[in-house]
Amino acid sequence: MPNRWCNSAKIRREQIESGTDLTFNLVFKPLIVSLISNLSPRNVLEIGAGTGHLSKELFNIGLSVTAIEPSKGMFEVAKEVLTTSNVKLINCTSFELEKDEIYEVAFSHLVAHVVDDLLGFFHSVGQHLKKGGHFIFSIPHPCFYNEYKGFFGNEYSYMTPMAKNVSFTITKDAENIISGVPYHHRPLSEYINKLVESGFAIDGFDETYPNEEIQEKYGTKWETPRYCVFTCKKL
């Protein structure tokens, strides 16, 4: 999985910094930054930092941030993006992070649906959180995303976990196809039950649905929420 993003790292940076990626800039960034800043953590861990832009935003509002990213291509781009910050950037997965690294908040943006071992992933996050700490993560909304993207076609069944490598574009940049990305469809119950099994309680759940002004920028209205964000507390 880590190397799948290498070739698209520079594309993703350009999409974010140019403002072409409406969903990242206008939907996810304000929501995730708000959720984390409201918790007033002393330190934050980003798991799967991608291009580093979310960690940079959190650093800019005064938070102490460590970012981990397994993809070498993404890591190199994130290193450039974070040059002017004090974000600590590490080229590793949550499974490989040193065990004594403990944080008050961990978050991952569009990571959980690409990992094969979901339970192991949640456990690996929990190992790096203090008791009472929070884990915030976003995924494509299991109830609606296949309706939007049509990745699974006629074989799709909401209650049946399934996986495949997919290709996609973002709304305002149809020319750049990001391909070979692993995608796991799992019903919400699987996420919830594995969170509970990993020692988390769910503190909040957001379904992303932009206001009309933002939706107009896409050129078409969102029929349903396309993504969702879990806020979980380590027990």
Rank of each mutant, 00 (worst) to 15 (best):
T231S: 14
H134S: 13
T169V: 15
E104W: 03
K99W: 00
F230V: 02
M74I: 05
G204L: 07
R4W: 10
T93S: 15
S94T: 09
F205I: 07
G219E: 03
T84W: 03
Y145L: 07
E223I: 06
Y218G: 03
N91W: 09
P30A: 11
V87I: 04
K88Q: 12
Q215Y: 04
V27T: 10
K99E: 15
L89R: 02
P2H: 07
A67H: 02
N38M: 03
H109F: 05
R4V: 14
H113Q: 13
H109E: 03
T231I: 13
K164Y: 08
C232F: 00
S94V: 14
T84Y: 10
L82H: 05
F75I: 08
K29H: 00
N165H: 12
L235K: 11
F95H: 14
V115M: 05
K79L: 07
D206Y: 15
F151I: 03
H109Q: 10
F168C: 07
L39F: 10
P41V: 02
P210N: 08
A67L: 00
A201C: 12
N86K: 13
S34H: 09
S167M: 08
K79P: 00
V229F: 00
I178H: 03
V111P: 03
H123F: 15
V111N: 04
Y156H: 07
S179W: 05
L195W: 05
S34A: 13
P210K: 03
M1A: 11
N38T: 06
G199L: 09
I177R: 04
H184V: 00
C92V: 10
I90H: 03
Y148D: 11
V181M: 15
E104P: 01
E17A: 08
I170L: 08
E76G: 01
I177P: 00
F28I: 05
T231E: 09
I32Q: 00
H109S: 01
S8L: 01
L63G: 07
T20E: 11
E190P: 06
W222C: 03
D21Y: 13
T208N: 10
V81M: 05
N60W: 04
P140W: 07
K10H: 08
S85C: 09
C143H: 08
P2T: 06
H185G: 00
K79R: 13
T220L: 11
I139E: 01
K72N: 12
T171C: 07
Y148E: 15
T231L: 11
H134E: 10
F121P: 01
N146Q: 04
E223C: 03
I178P: 02
P70M: 09
H134A: 08
N193Q: 14
G126E: 07
N211F: 09
T160I: 12
L35T: 06
V105H: 01
L82R: 02
L119Y: 14
E57P: 01
F144K: 06
L82V: 04
K88L: 06
D206T: 14
P30D: 09
E98C: 10
C228V: 11
